[in-house]
Write a protein that binds this DNA or RNA. Structure first.
Lengths: 331, 331
DNA sequence: CTCTCATGAGAGAGCGCTCTCTCACTCTGT
DNA sequence: ACAGAGTGAGAGAGCGCTCTCTCATGAGAG
C-alpha cells in the first residue's frame, strides 16, 4: 500500500533505475521508445517522486520561507496589504515551482523557531516581511548564509536585497497636495516610529512642511484603525483649528475619519484628509479617501525576482517602486 | 563548508551515530554523561538535523498544506476573514511543530499542481479553505488517502471532517432582529450561490421571511464590496419602499451602505442594514454595522485540532460553531 | 562463582533518489 | 575494414538519518 518508487517504475518499464530517473527529470539522452515505456509505467503506477529522497541528494528543497515578522497580531489580519503581498508572492513562486512555507514570527520564541527552521536547511531561501524596526531577524538570517530578501527596507543596515516603495516621496506628494490646495494647518498621524514606513512617511511630511514654512503637528499611531481614531481626537485637542491631516496609512485614516465625524468636522470642507496605501476600503469611506497608491503586487513580485537573482547570480540591487497620488474626495 | 552531520556530532562526542541520534530524538536510554557529551558536540558544531534525510526514513514531513481554493483573487486580498483564518491556523500548527505550506489554488492549472504536490507526499495532511462549491479539490484530495480537513462545509457531500459556523442560524437571527424591530419589507443581498455560506445564509433569510409572512426580495452579489454596492442599487430599483436589508457579508454591506447613501436613504431610519461576519471594518462604517459575529480564530483552531485527531485517531465529527448578533447602529 | 537478565551502546541495513563512472554499441571517416 | 568519436543505458556509490538487531557490561540471584 505504499507509494511506488522509481525502482518499481524501472522494473515495470524494463529499464534501470538510472534511466527511469533520466526520464523523470526530462533528460534528452533517452531513446524515444524507452522514454515512452517509462512514461507509461509512471502513468500506470501513478508514480510521484519522493521529494525527501530527492532533496536529500540534490541539497535543494524547492521551497522558500515567507516569514511574516510582526510583533502584534492585529495588523496582520487587519491590513489587506499583508494578504495582498502574500498572495502575490505565492503566485510568483508557484509559477517557478517553488513551494511557499508560511512562517509567523511574532514572539521571541517563534523567532527562535524560525531561525532554527531556516538554519535546518528546510528552504532554499527566505522572504522577509518584516515590519518591526528592532527586529533581530534580518541580521540573524543574513548571518545564516541563506539567501534572504526583504519586503520593505530593513530597519537596521544589513546586507539584504530589498524592495520598497518610495515612502518619503509618496508622503511628500501627499502633503504637497494639501499645501497646494491651500491648507494652512496640516497635521499628521504618523505610523510607528520603529517601522521604516512610519519613519519615512513622517520624514516626507516634515520635508514639505519645512519647505512651505508651516508648523508640524504630529500624533503617532500604530497603523491600526483604532490608533488612527485616537490620534485624530488627540490632534483635534492639540489644535482645533487644523484644516488638514496627512495620515500615514489608510487604516488609520479610516479611524481618523470616524473621529472627525464624531467631532462634527466635515471632510474635506473643514479638514482635508490624505491617506497612504490605497487599500480597497479607501474607495468606500465617507467621503472616499484621497491617498497614495503603491504597487503591492508588483513589489511582492519584484521581491521574488530578487530572490531568484540571488539564487542564480543576477543583479540584487535594492528596488524602490514609485507611489502615485490618487485624488478622491477627502482632499 | 557544508552543514555538520550526525556523523560529525557522533565523532566529536566519541560515540556512535546511533547514540547521537538517540540523544537528538530525546530517548531516555542514554547515560547522562554520554548525553551531555553529545549535546555539547551538537552545540559546538551548530548541528541541525537534516529534515530531508529524516523524513525519508520516518515517512513523515511534519508539514501541513493550507490550501486556499478560491476562484477569483479579489476576495482573498479583500476579505480579512481569510487572513485571520490563515493566521490562526498557522499559530496553532506552529504550536505543535508543524510547518505550514501555503498553496493557492485558483486556476485549474494550479489545482493540478496542488494535487500533484499533495500526492507527492510532501505533507502529512491538508487543510482546505475552499470557498467555491463546484470545487473539485475536496473530492480529489479525499481520494488521495491523505488526511484532509476543511474550513467550511464542503459543497459536495464528501467524507471530509469540517468546521463551520452556523450560517443558517446566524442569518435567521439577523433577519429575525429586523422583523422584531418592525421592519416590513426586508430585502437581502445574498452571497454567491455556489458557495455554501452564500446558500445557507440565503436559506436562513428565507426561513424567517416565510415564518413571518413577508415577501422575499433578493439580489445576489459575490461577497465583494463592489458587488454589494451594485446589488443595493438594484434592490432599490426593484422595490424603492424597502425598509431593511440583510446582507450576506460585511464587505457587501459596506458597498450597500455606500449605495444607500448615494440614493439619499438614511441608515437606519429609512433602511436598516444587517451584515454578516463582523469584520473589523464593521465598527468603522457610517453608521457602525449591526452584524453577525462568528469565531474565525476558534474555527481555524478547531480545524487544526480536527486534523490532529485525524492523525491520532481522535473524534472527527463535524464542528458547527455558533454565531452571535452584534447590534450596533445600522439596525 | 557461575548464570540470568536488564541496560546501554554500536553495527549496519535501509529510506528513494541523483549522478558519476563505465561500458556496449552504432556511426563516421580514412 | 578498423580506429575514433559519439551516444544511450546500467552499475553503484552515496545523500543523512532512523531503527532494529546484536552485543558488551555489570548487577543480582542461586
Amino acid at each position: 500500500m505504499r507509494r511506488p518508487t522509481l525502482e518499481a517504475v524501472a522494473a515495470r518499464a524494463g529499464v534501470s533505475r538510472a534511466t527511469a530517473s533520466r526520464v523523470v527529470n526530462g533528460q534528452t539522452t533517452v531513446a524515444p521508445h524507452i522514454r515512452d515505456a517509462v512514461l507509461r509505467a509512471i502513468d500506470e503506477l501513478g508514480y510521484v517522486p519522493n521529494s525527501a529522497a530527492r532533496s536529500l541528494v540534490t541539497q535543494r528543497t524547492d521551497s522558500v520561507a515567507l516569514v511574516v515578522s510582526e510583533p502584534g497580531t492585529r495588523v496582520f489580519s487587519e491590513d489587506p496589504l499583508f494578504s495582498t503581498a502574500i498572495r502575490s508572492a505565492s503566485v510568483e513562486l508557484e509559477a517557478i515551482n517553488k513551494q511557499v512555507v508560511l512562517m509567523l514570527a511574532s514572539s521571541p520564541k517563534s523567532h527562535a523557531r524560525v531561525e532554527r527552521y531556516i538554519a535546518g536547511g528546510h528552504v532554499d531561501g527566505v522572504m522577509l516581511l518584516s515590519m518591526h524596526g528592532a527586529d533581530p531577524l534580518p541580521s540573524a538570517l543574513s548571518r545564516l548564509r541563506v539567501p534572504v530578501v526583504s519586503y520593505g527596507r530593513p530597519a537596521v543596515p544589513v546586507d539584504i536585497p530589498f524592495v520598497d516603495n518610495d515612502n518619503v516621496g509618496g508622503a511628500e506628494a501627499g502633503v504637497r497636495h494639501l499645501v497646494e490646495t491651500g491648507r494652512r494647518r496640516i497635521a499628521t498621524i504618523a505610523g510607528p516610529q520603529d517601522m521604516i514606513a512610519g519613519q519615512d512617511r513622517l520624514a516626507g511630511y516634515r520635508n514639505v512642511l519645512r519647505d512651505s514654512d508651516r508648523r508640524s503637528i504630529v500624533a503617532v499611531g500604530d497603523f491600526t484603525r483604532e490608533s488612527g481614531a485616537i490620534a485624530m481626537r488627540q490632534l483635534l485637542g492639540d489644535d482645533p483649528a487644523l484644516d488638514a491631516v496627512f495620515v500615514a496609512n489608510d487604516l488609520m485614516a479610516v479611524g481618523a475619519l470616524q473621529s472627525l465625524r464624531q467631532a462634527g468636522r466635515r471632510v474635506p470642507d473643514d479638514v482635508a484628509v490624505v491617506g497612504f496605501d490605497d487599500i480597497e476600503a479607501a474607495k468606500y469611506t465617507e467621503p472616499p479617501l484621497t491617498t497614495l497608491r503603491h504597487p503591492v503586487v508588483e513589489q511582492a513580485a519584484a521581491m521574488v525576482r530578487l530572490l531568484l537573482n540571488l539564487f542564480e547570480g543576477g543583479p540584487t540591487d535594492p528596488i524602490i517602486l514609485p507611489t502615485e497620488l490618487v485624488i478622491r474626495e477627502s482632499a
